[in-house]
Every structure is written in C-alpha cells, then in structure tokens.
Amino acid sequence: MANRTVSDAIAVHGTNPQYLIEKIIRTRIYESLYWKESCFGLTAETVIDRAIELTSIGGQYGNQRPTEFLALVLKLLQLQPAKEIIIEFIRQEDYKYLRALGVFYLRLAGTSLEIYQYLEPLLNDYRKMRQRLPSGDFDIICMDEFIDNLLREERVFDTILPRLAKRHVLEENDELPPRISALEDDLEDDLPE
C-alpha cells in the first residue's frame, strides 16, 4: 500500500534501500498518521514541501514514536531520487531542515567518498536546529554537530549508519584530497612567515 520502493530502485549496500531503516521503526512509520496523511504520493520534488515544514530532527521519541524527519528519510529511501537531487537538497542554503534531510539520506545511501565530499564542508554551517530527544523534549543541535555525529557515530536517530571507509584510506588511494578545515586555514593566515 504505497509503501513499496520504486520499481527501478538499485540495491544500496546490498539491500532494498528502505531496509536501511530498521524493520520495527519502518513499521511504526507506515502506521503513523503523518505517513498516511502527509507522505502519501510524494515525489522527490514534493518532499521539499514537507521538509521545509519540519521544525525538528530526531529518531524516535516518547512512546517510540518516529519523528516526521525519520518518516521523510524513509520516503526518500523509497523514492531513491537521483543523486544530484539529494546534492541539491544539501547544497541549497535556505532551508536547514531540507539540508539535514539530504545529509542524513546521503549518509545512509551514499558512498564513503560522496559522504566526505558533501558532508565535510558543512562542518562550517553553525546554524541551530531543534532536535527531538527520546524523552520527547527538544534540544538544540547545530548543523556542524549533526554532521560530526554522522561522520563519527555508528548509530544516529535510532538508525545504524552503514560503515564509512576511513578518511586516510581514501586519501592514500588518491580518491580524496586531505581535508583542510576552515580553522586550520585561519591558523595559517595568522602564522608569521
């Protein structure tokens, strides 16, 4: 019932992309009113309307209710939009929750290389977002903090993140240039020659 993955989807990390969200949470999302009322028939384009209405990010809260954020992640996994669409979500600057959505999706479905390429630059985005805690309360989390969690943690928002290749491995294979953080840049400017 409209919970199927698009028929031309490609397996991600060897599985149906939707399975990247654990089964029990997936089921809870399918059964949620938000899913039935607001996520039905969405396309990658109309997901934007829902994403910009978001007022928080998070996993499950209260009595194990999945957040709307997680429902939209699942919707994207179902739709498997073209990579360039996800990059557009990440690249745009007007809607931080749309960016957060694209980022979380890319962390789940992207390659290690893409993840470093598109997530690391956002470590300079210090905008504040609201995060729904498991207790149901809200907390403030900055975009860079969220990105840092996605690059370091194994589990974020009750979701197991696929294994990320070590940065230095990609560097040694010449796939990725060494990262220069904005901070390092500043330091070098200050150093006397």
């Binding site: 396309t43 990658a44 934007i48 939009p81 073209a82 809607y95």
Partner: peptide, 23 residues
Amino acid sequence: SMKVERSTIDQVRSKLASLKAKK
C-alpha cells in the same frame, strides 16, 4: 496508478527557486 512520477533535477531546482522567490 500506484506509481509515483520520478522527479527530475530541473523540477527540483525550479521548485527551490520558486520557493525562494516566494520567501
């Protein structure tokens, strides 16, 4: 049908542009 249209990158870009203009 129960099939959802695949959005194109152009649709997404113009959607974002129109949202921005509205804003």
